[in-house]
Design a binder for these strands. Structure first.
Lengths: 262, 262
DNA sequence: CGCCACTTTGAATTAGCTCAAATTCCGTGG
DNA sequence: CCACGGAATTTGAGCTAATTCAAAGTGGCG
């Protein structure tokens, strides 16, 4: 624990955003198409009702920064982004990862200024909407308000799950659970969930999970050793997950009271 | 770390809710009255526009439970409540503490059912409002929507701060920061901030902060030894904080690179 | 080809955990 | 009023998971 050591601000590699946005083309298309459709519906609802501004972001681009005056909310149409919290004394903490369909900027509503940084981890497309314009549109289209609230609600629930993971799971399990959550997120968005491109360094993963980069590395090695994951590339950033269930099993084994074999 | 050991569900003592809701009567009344007024304004705005249901809750009372069908949001008028997250495998995690003016139930919006338990820690008063009625009222009174969004936004920002605290601070600093945050919360609500009644067991505090109850106890003892806090009662539940700034200094000293005295 | 950032792995250290025992507190009932 | 019992707390001692420090390996890019 104690993330103070390695800074996590360094940008990562630029990858084709197609990799993140490409829908799956496997047997079980219906489920994936449904999930993908949900995101598409939301995005359509927004663009029908509002003047959305669209822009492409590249790895390292800062969407908004802590302290900046709040005015817009952002919806991710493609790409992968991180949310970094900063403390007055200089600690930095990765508090969230965002995918297609996620909203950014809620933290700014309360105080009129954003409370953290939002940074692109690879190439992606961001739609931005003025908060006041959004509220006006919500008055006309109550369904829009539902979508907005659902997004905020999901964010709250997710943040709590993160806290629970950090507080109740040992390091190895936390890494496994992180991959499980990521795979699940991809599946929910209709993307292929058996393959994850870690667009973050070990230091960033460790910061997010409350452990050192060495511990992340050791945990990943252990997951490979136990054949729960497979690295597809020499760079060890392409994770293949043969069976997502195995990740859950691994987590359970970690928290199970040490088995007295015999 | 790893909270699995001691369960945190046991109810605590019933205390007069006046203790929590009583405004301060010291020199600096204006600031406190302003803070207190803000909460009062919000509550008035709500009751003017909506049919609020009010009820008194006692220590241990469950306001809502994970899995229960979502229908209402709750606003605390007095008292002190905890939010407990539950995992499918039985881990439980205290993910939030709520005071007067705070809202409960946002986690239920996204999935139509609450994602965690909300439990009273002492006697308090809760106002509940049907979510759909609230939305209808927001259409009439946009200011209400602002208040609602601000509450959700604050919750998101707070959850992130919690994660940062757990991930970046050593145990002693976490306990100090917890007290600092609590004192600050009281001050924001116009209550006296130099005195905190811990209506939680060491096990609950430890669960919330991601450490064992023994570590909490040792950290508190250290804070007493360093004269950052003083216990006012034999039960060691009434904490007096002579100077809130000293808590911040203590936190900084904990994370400062070990000073080579020489 | 060489540099630089990232990653892995090992070895030693330590913060925080587990286990254990003593103490205190508080409610209850005699 | 006091004795009793259970729950919570404190404190000590040893242990362990995860950290720190260190070194070697690897990959990508100019």
């Amino acid at each position: 624990m104690l993330n103070t050591a390695t800074p996590i601000t360094a940008p990562t590699l630029v990858r084709a955003m197609a990799a993140n946005a490409a829908p799956v083309s496997t047997v079980d298309t219906t489920a994936h198409e449904r999930a993908s459709q949900h995101v598409a519906d939301t995005l359509k609802l927004l663009s029908d009702q509002l003047a959305l501004q669209r822009r492409v972001a590249h790895a390292g681009d800062v969407i908004y920064q802590a302290g900046e005056r709040f005015s817009h909310l952002y919806i991710l149409n493609a790409g992968f982004f991180k949310i970094v919290n900063l403390s007055p004394d200089g600690r930095e903490q990765l508090v969230g990862l965002k995918f297609r369909g996620d909203w950014l900027g809620f933290d700014g509503i309360a105080n009129g200024q954003y409370a953290c940084d939002a940074v692109a981890m690879d190439t992606g497309e961001i739609w931005s909407v003025r908060y006041d314009a959004l509220l006006a549109a919500c008055a006309v289209r109550p369904q829009l308000l539902q979508v907005l609230h659902a997004a905020m609600s999901r964010e709250i629930a997710r943040d709590r799950d993160s806290l629970m993971s950090v507080c109740t799971l040992p390091a190895d399990a936390r890494v496994a659970d992180f991959l499980r959550y990521w795979a699940e997120s991809l599946a929910k968005r209709g993307l292929r969930a058996d393959q994850i491109t870690l667009r973050m360094t070990r230091a960033e993963i460790g910061n997010y999970l409350g452990m050192t980069l060495e511990t992340v590395s050791r945990a990943l090695s252990k997951l490979v050793r136990e054949e729960v994951i497979v690295f597809l590339d020499k760079g060890r950033r392409e994770v293949h997950i043969p069976d997502v269930g195995a990740l859950s099993v691994f987590v359970q084994r970690c928290i199970a009271p040490a088995v007295t074999l015999q």
